[in-house]
Design a protein around this nucleic acid. Structure first.
Lengths: 141, 141
DNA sequence: ATACTTGCAAATCGTTTGCAATACC
DNA sequence: GGTATTGCAAACGATTTGCAAGTAT
């Protein structure tokens, strides 16, 4: 039983060479530990820390490059909630977010859980690429 | 008829001294030129440029500090749509945004124009501070 | 007079880039 | 072997900060 074969194929499928560091990061990002489809929201800095903790030697630059490549490839989704910090979401399906302003934590809201009504049309000459709903929460209230 | 008296009072009302630079920036931000309630979306860099163009000597640091103070005071609303750049919106009422990814331009959507349905409840121990809806548009499409 | 503001320059933070060394096919 | 990828350090852009000088009440 070849280890990581699924991840290797996943990378090849999007045209990225399965290098040691891309594989290791894929494992951290996409490998479900346990049973639930627990999606993740990570910053570059966080992922770098996890990699180092796991004994994986990766430079921060590579983390950034990899996160960008994965996002372009559709394996990740960038979530912008705070100026000056990017979150990457392993859930690339249609969905929205709770954002805990105190702790900086994100929580997924399934796409079907939000109904948008009476949306104005996209202005002429433009088309909707995505609709982001962010529910900002104060912890405690 | 004292000029700027409205703006002066507005600043005093939120506990900010009406200094020369805060007044000048208030004028650029809040003074309706023309008739429409044309709300503005500016970045620090943009506002700085406008100030200099208008012959107002303000340092960029003061622009940043002022935008932050105005935001804390409730005169502005920060809009986060892009990593690494903050927009400040002179419209502090409940509303949402179109975001043109190509040009980086923002367009207000009145709060009543969007109906959110079946929103999940705020997780225990937290309360909703704000709901942001951002409709991301590709110019052309 | 006193406390608050400003400007400047330096510091900081997150992120990107250039380039030589290295790993993949 | 040839091209893609990595690491490092430097470069970068946006924003913040420390501190001396200036301004509002």
């Amino acid at each position: 039983m070849r280890p990581y074969s699924g991840l290797i194929d996943r990378l090849k499928a999007v045209g990225l060479r399965p290098t040691r560091q891309r594989l290791a990061l894929s494992r951290l990002l996409f490998e479900e530990d346990g049973s639930a489809d627990r999606h993740r929201h990570v910053t570059a800095e966080q992922l770098h820390g996890e990699a180092l903790d796991g004994g994986i030697r990766v430079s921060l630059a590579t983390i950034y490059n990899t996160l960008n490549q994965f996002t372009r490839a559709g394996l990740l989704r960038e979530v912008v909630v705070e100026p000056g910090r990017s979150y990457y979401d392993t859930n690339v399906d249609d969905h929205h977010h709770f954002y805990f302003e105190g702790s900086g934590r994100l929580l997924d809201i399934p796409g079907e859980s939000v109904h948008l009504d009476r949306l104005p049309e996209a202005p002429e000459g433009s088309s909707v690429r995505r609709v982001d709903v962010i529910i900002r929460l104060s912890d405690e209230g």
